[in-house]
Design a protein around this nucleic acid. Structure first.
Lengths: 211, 211, 211, 211
DNA sequence: TATGAATGAGACTTCATTCAT
DNA sequence: GATGAATGAAGTCTCATTCAT
C-alpha cells in the first residue's frame, strides 16, 4: 500500500518512438500476466522485465516504481472496457429489444474477458494493492453503472432515478459474477452459464421495461 | 465450535489449555483482519502477532509458517459456513415456500458476512496464495452447490440433475456477488440490494419450481 | 564465543541426590552425542533435554547456559582421560620394555576413544566454541605431554628437558592422529593402523631410549 | 589460478569482469578467515560481506546461500593443494633420495599452511557443516594418499599395494598432524617440530625403501 | 521442583531501486 | 539510452532463556 506519485510523474515519459511504444506495451503485457499468475507482491520487477525482454533499468525508464506498473495495467484495461462499452451504445441500440441488447452486452464482455485472461485476477487485487487504485476501480464501476442507468432512462422514462441506478448496479454485478463463473470450467460450461446469465437478466429486467 | 484440522504439520500443536486456545483464536482473528486489509503478502508475521497481543514466537508455536495461518483462517471460515448451511437445511425447510426459503438463506449469509467482514477479501486471495488453498475453496463452493442442488431435487424431482446443478451454481454465485455488493456502501444500500437479490433469485428460480 | 560464568556458578548446583545425578549425567551424554553429530551451534537446548528425557527447564537447573553444558562435557572427558593416564603410570611401568609400554598406552587410548565415540568430534570444536574451553583443552594436552616427558626422564636421565618435551609432544600428537585415523573405516583398518602406530612410535622413540 | 566449479546452483554466476572477480575472491578470503575464527554457524553472512567490503546482496549474487560459500572456500583450498602436489611430483622426483623427498613435501605443505592460516580450522569443520562437503574432503584425502602410494610403487615395486596404501595414509596423517602442531606456538617451535616430523617419517619409511 | 509455553533478538535471504559502465 | 551489478531495508523463522503454573 504505497503512495503513488502524482499524475504528471505517473509515467516517466510517454514513449514517443515506435520501439519505445512496443517495449512499453510488452512490459504491460508481461506485468498483467504475472500479476494474474502469482499476485502483485510476489512479482519481481526483474521478472517483469525478463518476460518483456528488457532489463530492470528499461522498466524504470517508463515507470517510477512497481506500483506504477500495476496502475498502468489497470488503466489500460479500464480504457479498453470503456471503448467496448462506448461501441455498444450507439443511437440505434435504444431501439433493440431488451433481450437482444442484453445478449450483445454479455457477449461483448465475454469476448473482452476471453481476450484478456488476466483481467479478472488483476482486478481482484486492486483493492489490496493501493487505495488509489481501488478508488479508480470503484469509480469505473460506477461510471459503467451510470451509463447503463442512462440507457435505462431512455427505455423507460417513468422509472425513478434511484430505482434505475439500483437496477444498473445490480445488473452489472450479476453479469460480472456470472461471466467470471463461466470461465472456471470448460467451454461447454462457459456457454451454459452465459446463456443462463442472459435469461436471468432478461427475466429480471423485463419487469421494469415492458417491451 | 470450529473444528481444527490436523494435517501433518498444518498446525504445530493444538492448544490444550483455555489460555492457549484463546491466543490461537486471537491470532486467527488478527490474521484474518490483516489479510483482508492489506493482502497476504503485505502482512508480516510480526504484525499478526502484535495485533494478536503476542510475539512472533507465539505465532510459530501454533503454525509452522505464514501460509499455515492463512490456511487456518480460510478453514475456520469454511467450517463456520458449513455449520450455517447445515442449520439452514432441516427437514421442515423443504416445506417452505420458495420465496421464504430464499429470504432465509440470503439473510443467514448476510449475517455471516456482516459478522465476518474480512471473509470476502480473504477469499478472493486464495487463488494467489496457494493452489492448495484455492482447491479447498473451489471444493467448498461445489459442496455448497451440491447441497443446494439436492435441495432442489426434493422440490422438483422432475428436474434433470445437470439442470439442477447449473441452477444451484448460478444461484450461489449471484447471491454471493450481491451480498458482497451490498456491503460496499451504507446500510440503506445494503438493505436495498439484499431485497433486490431476493427478488431476482425468486423470479429466476420460480420458473423451475412452480409453487 | 560467549563468556562463561565464573567457577562457583559454573554448575548451578552439584546434584546431591541420586536422581539428580542420574539426570545430570543423562544430559551430559545426550549433549556429547549431539555436539558430535551436528555441532555445537546446531544443537538446541530443547534437543538436548529431549534426548536426556527431561525438559529445557530441567537442563537449566544444572547449567546456567548452553555453553556451560559444552564445558561440562569437555571437562568430563578430560577427567576420564586423566584417570586413564594415571592408571597407566604406576611405579612398575618404568620397568616395562619401551615397546610394551607404547602398546599399553595406545591400547588404553583406543579403548577410551572407542568407548566414547563422541570424544573426538567434541574436541575439534572446542577451539571454536569458546576461547576458555580452547585454553582448557590446550592445557590438558600440555599436562599429558608433561606427564609423558617426566616418564621419559625416568627412562633416560641423560636426555635434556627441552628434548624430552619435544619428543613427548610429538608422540602425543602422532598417537592421537593415528588413533583418530583408525576410527575412520572398518575394524580391520582400525587394527592395521594401530599396529602401524605402535611400530612407528617404537622405531622413533627407541633412538632416544636404548633399551 | 584456481578453478571455479559449476555444479548446478553451486554458484549463482561466475564473475565475468575483473572487478567482480576481485570481489568474488575477497568474499572467499573473508569467509575463510571468519569460518576459521569463529566457526561456520557463528559466522553471519553480513559479517562476511562486511569484511569483504561489500553488501549481503553482493554475496548473494555469487552464492545461493551461506553453505555454498563454505563449499567454495573448501574447494578453493583443495584445488590449491592439488596444484601444490602436482608440482611436487615431476618425473625427476622419483630419483631423489627418500630423505630429500620427504623434506620437500613437508616444506611445501608447510608453506601452504603458513600462507593459508585458516586452512586447518576450516577443514576440521567440514564434517559438521554438510555431509557433502565432508565427502569431498574425505575423497581428497584419499586422492592424495593414492598419489603418494603410486609414488611408493615406483620406489619399491616389490611392496604390496595394500601395504603401500597403508603407509601412504599413515604418512599423510602424521605429516598433517605435526604440521598443525608446529603452528601452535612460536616459529622456533615450528622449526623444531618440522625437523622432527622429517626425521620421524624418514626413519619410519626407510624400512620399506632401502635406497 | 519440573514443565514447557512465551518472548524477542538476530540470522538468512529477497528484491525494489539506483547508477556506473 | 540500455544494461544489470550493487545496495540494504525488511521479512520469515529459530532458538536460548525465562517464568507462570
Amino acid at each position: 500500500m504505497t503512495k503513488v506519485p502524482e499524475e504528471p510523474e505517473q509515467q516517466r515519459r510517454l514513449p514517443q518512438q515506435a520501439r519505445s511504444w512496443a517495449r512499453f506495451n510488452r512490459i504491460l503485457d508481461a506485468a498483467a500476466e504475472l500479476f494474474a499468475e502469482i499476485g502483485y507482491e510476489s512479482v519481481t520487477t526483474d521478472e517483469i522485465a525478463a518476460r518483456a525482454n528488457t532489463s530492470v533499468g528499461g522498466l524504470y525508464r517508463f515507470f517510477p516504481d512497481k506500483l506504477a506498473v500495476f496502475h498502468a495495467v489497470v488503466e489500460r484495461y479500464l480504457n479498453q472496457l470503456r471503448e467496448m462499452f462506448a461501441a455498444l451504445h450507439t443511437e440505434e441500440t435504444t431501439q433493440l429489444p431488451l433481450e437482444v441488447y442484453i445478449g450483445q452486452v454479455i457477449d461483448a464482455f465475454d469476448q473482452f474477458v476471453t481476450a484478456n485472461p488476466s483481467y479478472r485476477a488483476v482486478f481482484v487485487q486492486s483493492r489490496l494493492v493501493s487505495t488509489e487504485i481501488m478508488a479508480m476501480d470503484t469509480a469505473f464501476n460506477q461510471e459503467i453503472a451510470q451509463q447503463l442507468s442512462a440507457f435505462f432512462a431512455l427505455r423507460n422514462p417513468a422509472l425513478e432515478a434511484s430505482q434505475r441506478d439500483l437496477l444498473a448496479t445490480v445488473s452489472v454485478e450479476v453479469a460480472s459474477a456470472l461471466e467470471i463463473l463461466s470461465l472456471t470450467r470448460d467451454s461447454k460450461f462457459q456457454h451454459l452459464v452465459l446463456t443462463e446469465a442472459k435469461k436471468l437478466l432478461f427475466i429480471y429486467l423485463r419487469q421494469y421495461f415492458p417491451d
